[in-house]
Nucleic acid binder design. Structure first.
Length: 434
RNA sequence: GCGACUAUUGUAUAACGGCUAUUACGCCGGUUUGUGGUACCGGAAAUCUGGGUUCGAUUCCCAGUAGUCGCCCCA
């Protein structure tokens, strides 16, 4: 056999979830689900496959995204298909499809896997899972407040100290007016430049600003972008909702940081925009945004003439997981995936009788695994202990003929004998105490 | 698409250009142990691929490949 074997590596930029990884993933999904549902959000999903037109139709400004950063292929019937790179067009399609029967406002969430074709790097892979929450319709100000409160609560439910993150907030209309006031006429590219402020050295950033506002306005504009001050909002005077959103959140006990330089990349945002960042000890944002979102108008435009507006955010599992691990926020219990009870037959002949006993205990709603390996009993016990099972039951000839088995609590070394049904209470009591 | 860096058992690592390539964890087997946790003994397991320099290359050079981290872009 000299033929070349296949590599066991996963495809570039995607992950294998071995049980230990999957346990963490499950914890993340469960926390997302629990939080969204505690706000009355309903879950939806769709296929990862979408007609390529869904993304192309969004307009020329997304050309790079569609042509270079999606997985797009032709199916056997000659149709162009794309692996969904984001959830918004899909949810817009779904809403437009049932617009007549859906009563607004709607609170919907989803945990889709999304794909983008690009070079993997820290916090960015080719496939990731994203917690997507949207409120469609409803009073604009309150919807914004509620959605940001949900974003906040998500962080809290992961056990994150509020000192460890910051919610940056801004408003697209405010940004546009601020730019106009400073003499910019190309809003779209100006927004792109502004979005990079925190990434670039000051002088380099100012150089870029010269391309979007008149040179004699650069200093003043730069100062304003750094001015996290509400008086700046008033000075722009556009009758904005931004103030009311910030104040409303404060009433709910949630502090946000007004950030004139927050822009976000996508063009479909029209109102409130926000991002959540990790902060260092001095309270300064670090790294990549963990969560981001904003308000959009007329989301269903490409499907119908009846406008539906909303506000939503997305939170990726890759960045979140990095953050949780770096901050030791993944509870130890999450990592243990072993059954509560391990039944250990002494010989292979006793495997089947052991399965029968395991089955009886399972009837009581207890998770039970049987170690059907060929190792010696000692090895099996050691293995069960290493894997974190709470109880072991050794099955030998005596147990099978008598029907009386002995269960041992590995933590306390306490033992109890009896028939399987007599022992379930003992197991349950000790499990709940944990 | 552009750039920087890295590549040694399953994982993490060590080795002035020179003995049989180190150590830990994990895995397999054994002894000890109160029905496991401890301790001890033993075993399998690696220099990415192809060239070059050299008496001799894991080590130096070149190319390829792969990965990591940036840039671009950000859903």
């Amino acid at each position: 056999m000299s033929d070349k074997k296949l590599s066991t590596d996963s495809y570039k930029g995607v992950r294998d979830f071995y049980p230990a990884d999957m346990a963490v993933q499950k914890y993340i999904f469960e926390t997302w689900t629990k939080t969204a549902e505690s706000f009355g959000f309903e879950r939806y999903d769709a296929s990862i496959l979408e007609p390529a037109d869904l993304y192309k139709a969004k307009g020329a400004e997304n050309e790079e995204l569609v042509n270079e950063q999606t997985y797009t292929f032709t199916d056997r019937g000659g149709r162009e298909v794309t692996l969904r790179p984001e959830m918004t067009p899909t949810v817009a399609r779904m809403i437009a499809g049932k617009q007549r029967e859906l009563a607004l406002p709607l609170r919907w969430y989803s945990i889709p896997n999304l794909f983008r074709y690009e070079r993997p790097q820290k916090g960015r892979l080719r496939e990731h899972w994203q917690f997507n929450c949207d409120i469609f319709g409803g009073d604009e100000i309150t919807a914004d407040i509620e959605l940001i409160a949900l974003a906040y609560q998500t962080m809290i439910n992961f056990g994150v100290n509020p000192q460890k993150f910051i919610i940056k907030i801004n408003h697209r209309t405010f940004l546009r007016e601020l730019l106009r006031k400073n003499g910019s006429n190309d809003i779209i590219s100006a927004t792109r430049v502004i979005d990079r402020m925190d990434k670039l050295p000051v002088e380099e950033f100012k150089e870029l600003l010269k391309e979007v506002v008149p040179e004699n306005n650069v200093e003043k504009f730069y100062t304003e972008l750094n001015q996290a001050d509400k008086s700046l909002i008033d000075s722009v005077d556009t009758n904005l909702s931004l103030m009311r959103v910030i104040d409303g959140l404060r009433e709910l006990g949630i502090e946000t940081a007004f950030s004139p330089s927050l822009a976000r990349g996508f063009d479909y945002y029209t109102g409130t925009i926000f991002e959540v960042f990790e902060v260092d000890q001095g309270g300064n944002p670090t790294g990549r945004a963990m969560l981001g979102g904003g308000r959009y108008d007329n989301l269903t435009m490409m499907f119908s003439n009846e406008p539906v507006s909303g506000i939503g955010f997305g939170m990726g599992d890759v960045t979140l997981r990095d953050f949780l691990e770096e901050n030791n926020l993944i509870p130890e219990r999450v990592r243990s995936t072993t059954a509560t009870v391990t039944v250990i037959p002494e010989t292979i002949e006793q495997n089947l009788p052991a399965e029968k006993i395991a089955s009886e205990i399972r009837q009581a709603g207890i998770s039970v695994a049987t170690d059907i390996g060929s190792q010696k009993t000692d090895k099996k016990k050691a293995r069960a202990s290493d894997r974190g099972t709470k109880f072991i039951i050794v099955i030998g000839e005596t147990e099978i003929t008598s029907g009386i088995i002995t269960v041992k609590n590995l933590k306390t070394s306490e033992e109890k004998s009896g028939t399987p049904s007599e022992l379930t209470d003992f197991i349950k009591q000790n499990t709940s105490v944990n």
